[in-house]
Amino acid sequence: MTTTEVTTLPANGDVSTWTPAEKAIADAAGLVFTHTYGDRQGQREPAPRAVVEKFLALSRQSGLNPLSNQIWCIGRLSKGRVEWAVQTGIDGFRLVADRSEKYAGQDEAEWMTDKGEWVDAFIPKLHGGQPLAARVRVYRSDWDRPAVGVAEWGAYVQTKRDGAPTEMWAKQGAGQLAKCAEALALRKAFPMDLSGLYTSDEIAAAPEQHVEVAGPSRDWSAEIAAAATHEEVEDLLDAADDAGERTEAVRTAAMTRHGMLGEPTQPDEIVVEPEPAAEAPAPDVAPASPADLSDADWLAQAEADVLRNGGQP
């Protein structure tokens, strides 16, 4: 298959490395979901990296260009969370087949009436409200037999909440069903290039495209709740930011913990204890008068005086 490299797409799903032009392309390709009601009305939620990587891989695999509306990503709000799916149009499928250089055309669509007959033109007034099924045969130059796609009405019709067909399916149900059958046949004929891709017409019957999104590397909220100081809380916030995991829940946990810790404390004041006052020297005591001494004490004092005077009396 000869493909044209989509050079306008980002090289990978790391948003931090994208140029402003690449971010605009991702936005145009549907990789940013805008909430339209509720508490989050107006908020923009980018697709997680796993979804972006899948979209980029399928775009390159198929050679389809999101700027030409050949492939895009759709985010749908379901039970409070955004579910993502990669879609294309039937023209994108036809383009992939044509580029393969092995596409040998297809037969016109056929529809089954409520009488079990296949007709090449379904007329509601003639054949009933809607066809039971549609069928398309796609040929490859290197295959002896065609790839046949059969789409049954109940499996593909898109309905509103009350179960009635959507406006497009109510007005052009036969044509919508035929495009589903054609997409099935083309996917059978060119599985290498179209595997994992579904047209917007058949998306209701496509397998759920859940993308496993890796959880955070650490339980930031729990660690923040256990922090003992404001500085620890801020350090954890910085670490979560560096890991690309500073979510709204993490920020809320940090604000809550700051409130629980109260006002940041100032460094302890250094108190200098005064040095104890030096003891005053004992006052000199005048020697006792000789008259107050006994004979023995007088003699001892006299001998001490002689010794202090170098032996001289």
Rank of each mutant, 00 (worst) to 15 (best):
M260V: 13
N12P: 01
A204P: 01
E279V: 15
V157C: 12
V306S: 03
V96H: 03
Q176P: 08
E208Y: 12
R140Q: 07
E167P: 00
D27H: 14
D114W: 10
A240I: 02
K160E: 13
K79P: 03
D91G: 12
D235T: 05
K160Y: 03
R94D: 11
D241Q: 10
V52S: 01
N69A: 09
T3V: 15
T17E: 15
K79L: 10
A174N: 02
G163K: 04
I224K: 03
D219F: 08
A249G: 11
E108D: 11
C180I: 02
A170I: 02
Q301T: 01
L194D: 04
S221D: 13
A170H: 04
D27I: 07
E208D: 12
P191C: 05
T17I: 02
V52N: 08
E273F: 14
C180K: 00
L56I: 00
P191Y: 13
R60H: 09
R76V: 12
H35F: 15
R257F: 04
A253W: 10
V306L: 11
Q106Y: 15
S62E: 02
A291H: 06
G154F: 08
P46E: 05
V15A: 15
A151N: 01
D107E: 07
P264L: 00
T247Y: 11
R44N: 02
L67H: 03
A282W: 02
T247G: 08
A282K: 15
A85T: 13
A97G: 06
E202Y: 01
W118N: 04
Y139C: 03
R94Y: 04
A239G: 06
L31K: 00
S200N: 12
V138T: 06
D144V: 10
P207K: 00
L95Q: 15
Q266L: 09
V306D: 07
W169I: 01
F55C: 01
E5R: 12
